[in-house]
Amino acid sequence: MNGFSGVLGQAFGLILAWDADLVAIIGLSLRVTLSAVVIACLVGLPLGAVVGAFRFPGRVLADLLLNALMGLPPVVVGLLVYLMLSASGPLGPLALLYTPTAMIVAQTILVTPIIAALTRQAIRDLDREYDEQFQSLGVGPVARVAALLWDARFSLLTVALAGFGRAVAEVGAVLIVGGNINHVTRMMTTAIALETSKGNLQLALALGVVLLALALVVNAAVMAVRGLAVRAAHA
């Protein structure tokens, strides 16, 4: 226990001292993850809304695909992105492998189906309520999607936060395509894996504490948003 409490103490020491390495790793993690979540929202929100709001041939297949892609194994995504970006891959000339951009690509691929599938469900539930009124008003398809997205805004904010939670905790894909290069592609999760194996437990634990704190903040934000929605009687 002494060993553990000692390491924990040193870890908090690193956090409180605002250790430069620690800050760089947290900064890169947030930059990569937030970029991936924003791109995933730009793609996943409209995609999920369209699948949720309209009946079209192949909708069941689209539902199935979105649900299946939600469970994409991160290491498989990492491997596929690696193959695309490696020197001999189709996107090799872009020289993106082992860059933050490669990690953003991998995380975007992981998170987009999650955002799209959760959006589809939120939009479909809302559309059931609005459908006849929209038909009666003669709402066109574009206005329909826009109105559903706007009216589901509180649910969709929690969807985005769920995507963020998934991305920030992910390790397999970013490790493969980023390479965990110090000061270049070292993220919180990849650093924890590496530092633990090196026996540098203080930094690993400090990063773990920060990750847990982030998870706490994200969940608190989700609850706050829900509370806000209920208070505003928009839910």
Partner: peptide, 22 residues
Amino acid sequence: FQRPVMLRRSVLANLRFALAVQ
């Protein structure tokens, strides 16, 4: 409708939406 369907917006915004559609 028997049960009014209200958008999750203000009273005024509900009216503005219907007019925008028109």
